[in-house]
């Protein structure tokens, strides 16, 4: 990562690339602009996405629309209770003619992996995917196989209250950068959705609008977005606040802070800015933090959700001023965080 702050030309590349993908996805998913934006922000930041909602609201469609809009290799895994780790990673098969075991890559060997209903599979199988996400490689029978780059997992899951689900362990939820909820569409959007289906499956009409290299380039640019001390401080303050909130049993980890800043960088780049503003952090905090906090039993038994609690918490953390000594924005005070 070079230290230089992205130039306006570079930022223009990011915005045009991401706008193209956004437009493409919006044509399939009406009324989901902000979810698409968050999704693309996560993609730009190189993070993985966990989508959680009731069946039928378009989680899979969103994931597929993303995959199809990028000229990328797509792998799709439908998680079921009897899915085995080998079904995810691939297996070595004995080839009688060569007397060798030949590795047959599983669906995880793709740039965009759609892990549908990830919480329907057994924890063992979930772990296989999550380890692949963490390591960037898969080890089968003692041989390590590198996953392609970029590697992006879009996992969907049903709310854990539903029957036949295995909730993801906290440590594994932490692997996902953002946690999104789609929600039911508005009446107008639902009508528009019906209209969109008239000419057949709209997904089939999608053509790739951005190449993998475009995306990789954009990601590289986004990672260089400048985070001012005041902005970093704000992210830290918010994450720290999750650890002190009375209704949160387990707060977010320092990794959450890093991912929040990374996501905020992407959001800034998405908007063509070369620096983070607190609005980026504020906007992304519920998505980045809500799946990482564990509510107290009281809170769980109430009607609040993690996202609501994080939202409430963000609304109360003061935005730091740039007045502390050294907090003044000068090049010398920059740290490549």
């Amino acid at each position: 990562m070079t230290d230089a702050v992205p130039t306006s030309t570079e930022l223009a590349h990011v915005t045009t690339t991401m706008e193209r993908i956004h437009t493409s996805m919006s044509s399939v998913l009406s009324g989901l602009d902000s979810v698409i934006t968050t999704t693309l922000t996560t993609v730009l930041a190189g993070g993985h996405i966990l989508m959680e909602d009731v069946p039928g609201v378009g989680k899979t469609t969103l994931a597929r629309a993303l995959a199809r809009s990028i000229d990328a290799q797509v792998g799709r895994i439908q998680f079921t209770p009897d899915l085995l780790p080998a079904d995810v990673t691939g297996v070595s098969i004995y080839q009688a003619n060569t007397h060798h075991f030949e590795f047959r890559p599983g669906p995880v060997f793709a740039n965009v992996v759609i892990a549908d209903e990830i919480n329907r599979a057994s924890p063992k199988t979930q772990s296989a995917l999550l380890e692949a996400m963490q390591e960037g490689s898969v080890t089968v029978d003692g041989t390590t196989h590198a996953l392609p780059s970029p590697f992006l997992v879009v996992a969907t899951q049903n709310p854990i209250e539903m029957e036949g689900t295995y909730p993801l362990p906290e440590a594994q939820r932490d692997r996902f950068m953002t946690h999104l909820s789609i929600g039911y569409p508005s009446a107008d959007d639902e009508v528009a959705m019906i209209d969109g289906r008239d000419g057949g499956d709209p997904l089939a009409r999608l053509t790739p609008v951005a190449s993998l290299s475009d995306l990789e380039h954009a990601s590289a640019i986004a990672s260089r977005v400048y985070a001012a001390p005041a902005a970093k401080r704000y992210a830290v303050d918010i994450v720290a606040a999750t650890r002190q909130h009375s209704r949160i049993k387990l707060g977010a980890s320092p990794r959450a802070t890093l991912q929040l800043i990374a996501a905020a960088r992407a959001a800034a780049a998405f908007e063509g800015r070369n620096h983070i503003i607190p609005d980026d952090i504020k906007y992304l905090a519920p998505a980045v933090l809500s799946h990482r906090v564990v509510l107290t039993r009281d809170a769980r038994h109430g009607t609040v959700t993690q996202a609501e609690i994080v939202g409430d918490l963000v609304a109360n953390v003061p935005v730091p001023r740039a007045t502390a000594p050294g907090a003044r924005n000068v090049a010398g005070s920059r740290a490549s965080a």
């Binding site: 001012a228 740039a322 924005n329």
Partner: peptide, 13 residues
């Protein structure tokens, strides 16, 4: 204010 607090390059300030 935003530029002063968050912008990257002093020239902007």
């Amino acid at each position: 204010v935003e530029d002063f607090r968050y912008a990257a390059v002093p020239s902007e300030v």
